[in-house]
């Protein structure tokens, strides 16, 4: 895990850089003006929210298929930590998104496909964490949580296919295309990329630290029991 520790230390450089670039270096967007700067925070938050979800899902699959007991415990612990972080990032993405929506479109919530999708991800996180919270035995908690996450994860493609057909889109694809950065001015694109890296590193760092805290807590408990 040494390499993980080292790489995520990059957060100490990336985040300040991202903040400076977002507020000082990148130019304001054509129509939205200064408020477009929220882009550099909202998009990475949403990206990490989904990334954390994928990480939890993959770790859950690894957990169920692993035969090694210690590895399994690690997979389970990190799947859980990733989900908690994912929940936090999702909440922040929803908040920043709502603020931006208020400024750009006039209301806090609009049932646009992307907003709806992020709410579904939020619900899945809440369901997963509730399910885990209710089960006392660690093995059973891990197994059932992992099975649930895998099912929920595999249902997500159905959402991705459906949501745009059910709800009409309000997301500014035509003004600033947040996904396909080809439409962004070079400076904005650069800032966005740095910001995405910064938030990913933040997630990684928090995940690493959380993992360390929980294994230390466990070790203390073991010593206490002995």
């Amino acid at each position: 895990m040494k390499w993980f520790d080292r790489i995520t230390h990059s957060i100490h450089i990336l985040m300040p850089l991202a903040i400076i670039m977002a507020f000082l270096w990148a130019p304001p967007a054509d129509i939205l003006g200064e408020s477009s700067r929220i882009l550099y925070f909202h998009v990475p938050l949403a990206w990490v929210a989904v990334f954390a979800f994928a990480v939890s899902g993959v770790l859950s699959i690894l957990y169920l298929s692993s035969k090694n007991e210690t590895k399994r415990d690690t997979f389970d612990a990190y799947a859980h930590h990733s989900a908690v972080l994912g929940l936090l990032f999702t909440l922040m993405a929803v908040i920043t998104g709502s603020i931006w929506a208020r400024i750009s479109w006039g209301s806090f919530w609009n049932w646009d496909p992307r907003e709806t999708s992020i709410v579904i991800v939020l619900l899945i996180y809440l369901a997963y964490l509730s399910l885990r919270a209710v089960i006392p035995e660690p093995n059973r908690k891990g197994r059932i949580g992992a099975a649930y996450l895998i099912i929920a994860m595999s249902v997500v493609p159905f959402f991705v296919f459906l949501v745009p057909r059910i709800y009409e889109s309000l997301h500014p694809d035509t003004i600033i295309n947040a996904e396909r950065t080809v439409h962004l001015a070079p400076q904005m694109r650069a800032t966005l990329i740095v910001s995405v890296c910064a938030f990913t590193a933040l997630y990684g760092r928090l995940l690493f630290l959380q993992g360390r805290v929980s294994s230390l807590a466990q070790r203390i408990e073991e010593i206490y029991d002995e």
């Binding site: 619900l123 899945i124 509730s130 059973r140 249902v155």
Partner: peptide, 22 residues
Amino acid sequence: MVARAGGRGSLFTVISFPVMMP
């Protein structure tokens, strides 16, 4: 899953809703 988790009714709704939304 809910049965193995203790069977509380509201938990079933909480975990079913996201999956059944589509």
